Computed example of a mutant assay.
Amino acid sequence: MRPDRLKALCLEQTAVVEEFPFGPESSVFKVAGKMFALTDLAATPLTVSLKCDPDEAVRLRAAHPAIVPGYHLNKRHWNTVTVGELPARMVRELIEDSYDLVVAGLPKAERLRLDRP
């Protein structure tokens, strides 16, 4: 998967913005001000850090060497994924799961605004 495709997958989620709070090289994708993905789109290999259910995070790490505890993040809730070593469909699902976890933690009024009760 190329960096532009990774970026597009993150931005196609509802109400997502890309910000650069850690400098111009680190793309942070947020919904309602909350981060769900962090990546350096110019890095080789291309990786993305994504939020994950803690039990699922452990299972994914055990099953896929390309998924490791989140780099510089809470390792219980975040995984860092080496994008090119996994099927594109799986990367898409991990991005969607990360987004859904963040949205689920938003106040009800914010979820309704996003059309996600």
Score class of each variant (00 low, 15 high):
residue 30 K to Y: 12
residue 35 M to L: 14
residue 50 L to E: 07
residue 48 V to G: 04
residue 38 L to K: 09
residue 58 V to T: 07
residue 45 P to I: 07
residue 51 K to F: 00
residue 50 L to C: 10
residue 37 A to E: 05
residue 20 F to H: 14
residue 49 S to F: 01
residue 62 A to F: 01
residue 70 G to I: 02
residue 27 S to Y: 06
residue 56 E to Q: 15
residue 42 A to D: 14
residue 25 E to N: 08
residue 24 P to W: 15
residue 27 S to M: 08
residue 20 F to Y: 08
residue 73 L to R: 00
residue 62 A to L: 14
residue 51 K to E: 01
residue 56 E to R: 15
residue 64 H to C: 11
residue 25 E to A: 11
residue 24 P to I: 11
residue 49 S to I: 03
residue 27 S to W: 07
residue 69 P to A: 03
residue 53 D to C: 03
residue 53 D to K: 08
residue 23 G to D: 07
residue 64 H to T: 08
residue 51 K to G: 00
residue 48 V to Q: 08
residue 56 E to K: 13
residue 75 K to L: 14
residue 40 D to Y: 05
residue 64 H to M: 09
residue 27 S to D: 15
residue 40 D to W: 03
residue 40 D to K: 03
residue 68 V to Y: 04
residue 32 A to W: 01
residue 56 E to L: 15
residue 57 A to D: 08
residue 66 A to Q: 01
residue 56 E to H: 13
residue 56 E to G: 05
residue 61 R to M: 11
residue 40 D to L: 03
residue 68 V to E: 14
residue 41 L to H: 03
residue 50 L to I: 15
residue 44 T to E: 15
residue 29 F to I: 09
residue 62 A to E: 13
residue 28 V to N: 14
residue 66 A to W: 04
residue 39 T to P: 04
residue 29 F to L: 09
residue 38 L to G: 11
residue 72 H to A: 14
residue 72 H to W: 10
residue 57 A to F: 10
residue 26 S to M: 13
residue 51 K to M: 01
residue 71 Y to P: 06
residue 51 K to R: 14
residue 59 R to G: 06
residue 52 C to G: 06
residue 32 A to N: 04
residue 45 P to M: 07
residue 63 A to W: 08
residue 47 T to D: 02
residue 52 C to V: 04
residue 52 C to H: 01
residue 37 A to P: 09
residue 45 P to S: 12
residue 43 A to M: 03
residue 50 L to Q: 08
residue 52 C to I: 01
residue 73 L to M: 08
residue 26 S to Y: 11
residue 32 A to G: 08
residue 52 C to F: 00
residue 23 G to Y: 03
residue 65 P to V: 10
residue 24 P to E: 15
residue 44 T to P: 02
residue 46 L to S: 07
residue 68 V to W: 06
residue 48 V to L: 05
residue 61 R to A: 07
residue 77 H to Q: 06
residue 71 Y to G: 07
residue 55 D to S: 09
residue 65 P to R: 13
residue 30 K to M: 12
residue 34 K to I: 12
residue 72 H to F: 07
residue 25 E to I: 06
residue 48 V to W: 08
residue 47 T to H: 12
residue 66 A to T: 00
residue 61 R to C: 12
residue 71 Y to M: 09
residue 47 T to P: 02
residue 54 P to S: 13
residue 61 R to K: 12
residue 76 R to V: 00
residue 73 L to C: 00
residue 75 K to G: 08
residue 50 L to F: 15
residue 35 M to S: 11
residue 62 A to V: 04
residue 61 R to Q: 15
residue 34 K to W: 13
residue 66 A to I: 02
residue 58 V to M: 06
residue 73 L to T: 00
residue 65 P to W: 06
residue 35 M to Y: 04
residue 31 V to L: 09
residue 42 A to R: 09
residue 50 L to H: 13
residue 19 E to D: 13
residue 43 A to F: 03
residue 53 D to G: 02
residue 42 A to L: 05
residue 67 I to M: 12
residue 43 A to R: 02
residue 38 L to T: 11
residue 46 L to F: 04
residue 78 W to N: 02
residue 52 C to E: 02
residue 24 P to A: 15
residue 76 R to G: 00
residue 49 S to A: 10
residue 42 A to N: 14
residue 46 L to G: 07
residue 27 S to Q: 12
residue 50 L to V: 14
residue 20 F to S: 03
residue 25 E to Q: 09
residue 19 E to M: 02
residue 67 I to F: 10
residue 42 A to T: 13
